[in-house]
């Protein structure tokens, strides 16, 4: 464990918590893409499938973190699609999730390190996570704005994988550890946030709201 991965995981936890708080406090999921949250839930379940296969006692924080990620993302989907369904902006959350899931699944079968079920599920989860934020960014471009709290969520969510890139550089240098698939997908994932990061740093930090040129 290194400082970059630690802060990456903390940033990821913060993002999940910020989104849950936003939906719970405002009792509304306006401006939140339900599809992105569904894709994240799929990512966690396919990536941590080992938790369900051979359930080992929660002896370390990693297992607890995995369970937190899975339960929090499923609970977030429950809030969006059931509890606060009336506030779900289905019209603007219109990016076809199939266009992300099918290519990720296909690519996972073509480019992986081992052709076995668990490895392919893990690879699918890595590829899907790289593009899972697209419906959320698409929704913001359609509505032309993002609530400040949603911007903070996106900033934390984008920072998590950016910090993981630093973690991979660190591990390459000190542990000669290389996970090409995760690195390439992580770089793509972080690049997708670039224009948002620019807007966040130039606007939200100064207290302004993000309004995209309609």
């Amino acid at each position: 464990m290194n400082i970059f991965r630690l802060f990456g995981d903390l940033s990821h936890l913060a993002a999940i918590a910020i989104l849950l708080l936003k939906i719970w406090k405002t009792r509304s999921c306006a401006g939140v893409s339900g599809k992105t949250q569904l894709l994240f839930a799929v990512c966690f379940i396919t990536r941590y499938i080992d938790l369900f296969l051979h359930f080992v006692s929660l002896y370390n924080t990693e297992k607890v973190m995995k369970l937190i990620y899975i339960s929090a993302s499923v609970f977030t989907c429950y809030l969006i699609f059931f509890k606060f369904k009336a506030t779900y902006d289905g019209n603007h959350d219109s990016m076809r999730a199939e266009f992300l899931i099918v290519p990720a699944a296909g690519l996972a079968c073509l480019i992986n390190t081992k052709f076995d079920a668990i490895e392919i599920l893990w690879t699918f989860s890595i590829y899907l996570e790289a593009v899972a934020i697209l419906p959320q960014l698409f929704l913001i471009s359609k509505t032309g704005e993002a609530e400040t709290i949603t911007s903070h969520y996106l900033f934390a969510q984008g920072s998590y994988r950016a910090l993981y890139i630093l973690n991979w550089i660190y591990r390459y240098h000190y542990e000669s550890h290389v996970d090409t698939i995760a690195i390439v997908a992580g770089v793509v994932q972080t690049i997708l946030y670039c224009d948002f990061f620019y807007l966040y740093i130039t606007k939200v930090v100064k207290g302004q709201k993000i309004v995209l040129p309609a």
Partner: peptide, 10 residues
């Protein structure tokens, strides 16, 4: 060295 086998990251 590819060390994918040990999935030690979240």
């Amino acid at each position: 060295k590819e060390t994918n086998a040990a999935k030690d990251e979240l």
